[in-house]
């Protein structure tokens, strides 16, 4: 599904990714753990196509296409989804309008028929209920006045609505209390499927107690230093990232 080879990327002229190799098979949940500044968020932005993230070497192939050549909206239509660490507030545009525009844009690009307003609302109502989001919030500006947990829940709603092939969750656990974390994890788990993969990026092992990964990678200083099973997350929780960074770090 996703194959990354020797990926190097620069931000503000500084090399942050220094040769990433990563292959994700359909239906798998991969976790990338790493200390702050290791390049975790950079990897997610490079995959989603954010401006200012310059790829200098390597390739990324997604669903058989050269991902790095595509605009962000094409990547989304192809089935890539990035759940933001800091979801953006868009005042004056309701979540409903935003969701409808996004879903229909993706359907159109995939050559599917756009949803009529009634079918869209029915789908949105169902997904909103599944995620346990207050329907009232859909009428507000996107993420405006939402708490940290509500913003993340809104990301999961978008994930559920857009049904991507690969969802990249960028520090979705940051700033969440344990209840909000469970809600987000439940939402993600409900979406696990044979043809859908996840790349869960996190600093802490905590989230991985609720979203069980198949594969865990340690990213440090722009490279994947170690790959293992779920037990690797536990080991990191215990020992910290010191052995990968060459310095002590408070966990």
């Amino acid at each position: 599904m996703l194959e990354i080879k020797n990926l190097h990327a620069r931000v503000d002229g500084k090399e942050v990714l220094k040769g990433i190799d990563l292959t994700i098979e359909p239906g798998k949940v991969h976790a990338i753990m790493g200390p702050n500044g290791s390049g975790k968020s950079t990897l997610s932005y490079v995959l989603a196509g954010r401006e200012g993230y310059e790829v200098t070497q390597g390739t990324a192939t997604f669903m058989g296409e050269n991902l790095l050549e595509l605009d962000p909206e094409h990547r989304a239509a192809l089935g890539l989804f990035l759940a933001f660490q800091y979801p953006v507030e868009i005042p004056g545009v309701t979540t409903t309008t935003f969701m409808k525009t996004a879903l229909n844009a993706i359907r159109k690009k995939r050559g599917e028929k756009e949803l009529d307003p009634a079918s869209f609302l029915k789908l949105q109502k169902q997904k909103t209920a599944e995620i346990g989001m207050e329907p009232e919030m859909l009428k507000r500006g996107v993420n405006v006045g939402f708490s940290g947990g509500e913003k993340k829940r809104n990301e999961v709603l978008q994930l559920a609505m857009l049904q991507p092939k690969l969802a990249v969750l960028d520090e979705t656990d940051s700033g969440l209390d344990i209840d909000a974390l469970k809600v987000v994890a439940d939402g993600v788990n409900a979406l696990r499927a044979e043809d859908r993969s996840f790349l869960v990026i996190t600093h802490y092992q905590r989230l991985l107690e609720y979203i069980k990964p198949d594969v865990v990678h340690v990213l440090a200083d722009g490279k994947i230093r170690k790959t293992g099973g779920p037990e690797l997350a536990l080991e990191l929780e215990e020992k910290g990232y010191a052995e990968y960074t060459g310095q002590e770090e408070a966990a």
Binding site: A48, I90, A105, L162
Partner: peptide
């Protein structure tokens, strides 16, 4: 970028931000 990452084409995304 947020809007585009949800599949909204760049020109539509700009319009949406102007309306916002």
């Amino acid at each position: 970028f947020y809007l585009r990452s949800r599949g909204i084409p760049v020109d539509d995304a700009k319009d949406m931000l102007v309306e916002s």
